[in-house]
Every structure is written in C-alpha cells, then in structure tokens.
C-alpha cells in the first residue's frame, strides 16, 4: 500500500508533472507566474483543492451515478475553491488581490477535473490523496520555476529581492503574456531534452 502511494505521489513530480508533461491547466500557469510568490501561492491553492476534491470524489465513487458524475465533480470542486477563496481573503489578503480572478477560475482548471475523472473516480481514497498531493506539488513547483525565470529576467528580482546590480535593465517582455508562452515553451523544450537521455 505504501509503495503504490509513493508511486502515485512521485509520478506527479516528474513523469506526469502537470503543466510540462500533461500540458494541462495552462491558463493560470501563463497568467499568474509574473513572480515566484504569485506562482507558489496559486500552486498551493490548487494543491489544496486537488487533494480535497480527489479525496471526496474517491470516497463517493461508488455512490455517484456515472451519468451525473461531472456535475458532482464540479459541485465538489467549486465548493473547495470557494473555501480557498474565503480563506485567502481572511488570511493572505494581498496575495488574494494579486491572484484576483484566477482563484475562482481554479474551478475550471483542467488538472483538477482531469484528476477527478481520470484517477480519483477509479481508485481508493489513499491513492487519490497521494495522486492529488503529487500533482499539486508538481504544479506548484512548475509555477514557482516559471515564476522565478520570469521574475528574474522581467523585473530583476526573486521574491522581491534584487538579484542583479543597479545597472540591470529589466527585460519586461518576460512579465507580459507573450513572454509567458516563450518561457513555457523553452522550459518544455529543456525538460524534453533532459527526459530523452
């Protein structure tokens, strides 16, 4: 049991790391990774939703009729997203302001619904939690990495601390939307290169 949990957990970290390998849930990936802080905050919020919804879907998998499963998934996911939204408003308000509309949009993030449909609905709760946690952490790391590259080049900072000397000219292209695509493409390319060996 422990072994299969580890397997489900680790696949989300590399072999099926969501934005790069599955290329799913790109909307928040591209939109919020202007800085490391935003990326990781978004990642943690998504992880919470993923773990909770995976667990609940898996728990109810024998009760939910197949015909209305998607509707049930959406109700479950939307509930947890709203919980996250309220929690963020109560405890991390500045981050909530920066992420803005992308927090409620976790509801339509393909990863969350995708994992519920493809994994949690067919597997036992402990595996579903491991899967959700792995996918969520993989997602958080990807967003953090993408955010780090973009923040570093685009604003010359990492987590708000300057990394270059005062003579640095920010490469503002990187913090705009096209920069996000280019950066994601290059990172995908790099991952495929490493993966090939």
């Amino acid at each position: 049991m422990a072994q299969s949990m580890v397997k489900e957990f680790t696949k989300g970290l590399w072999a099926e790391i969501p934005p790069f390998r599955l290329v799913l849930g790109l909307c928040p990936v591209l939109a919020v990774t202007k800085s490391v802080e935003n990326g990781i905050g978004m990642g943690i919020a998504t992880t919470f939703v993923l773990v909770c919804s995976n667990f609940l879907v898996s728990l109810l998998r024998n009760i939910i009729p197949t015909k209305v499963r998607i509707a049930c998934f959406i109700v479950i996911i939307a509930t947890f997203v709203t919980v996250v939204e309220l929690m963020m408003q109560a405890y991390t308000y500045p981050l909530f302001l920066k992420l803005g509309i992308f927090i409620p949009l976790i509801v339509v993030n393909c990863i969350v619904l995708g994992r519920a449909e493809a994994f949690a609905f067919k597997n036992a709760p402990h595996l579903a939690i491991a899967d959700g946690l792995g996918m969520g952490i993989g997602f958080t790391l990807s967003l953090g990495a993408l955010g780090a590259v973009r923040e570093c080049l685009g604003s010359g900072t990492i987590l708000g601390n300057a990394v270059f000397g005062p003579g640095f000219q920010p490469f503002t292209f990187m913090v705009e939307a096209p920069g996000a695509f280019v950066c994601l493409g290059l990172m995908l390319c790099l991952m495929n290169l490493i993966g090939k060996k």
Binding site: L60, I63, I64, P65, K67, V68, C72, V75, I76
Partner: peptide, 8 residues
C-alpha cells in the same frame, strides 16, 4: 441521480 446531486 437526483438524491445524490441534491445531498451533495
């Protein structure tokens, strides 16, 4: 279907 969705 109705019961599950309603309860949920």
């Amino acid at each position: 279907m109705v019961v599950v969705l309603t309860v949920l």
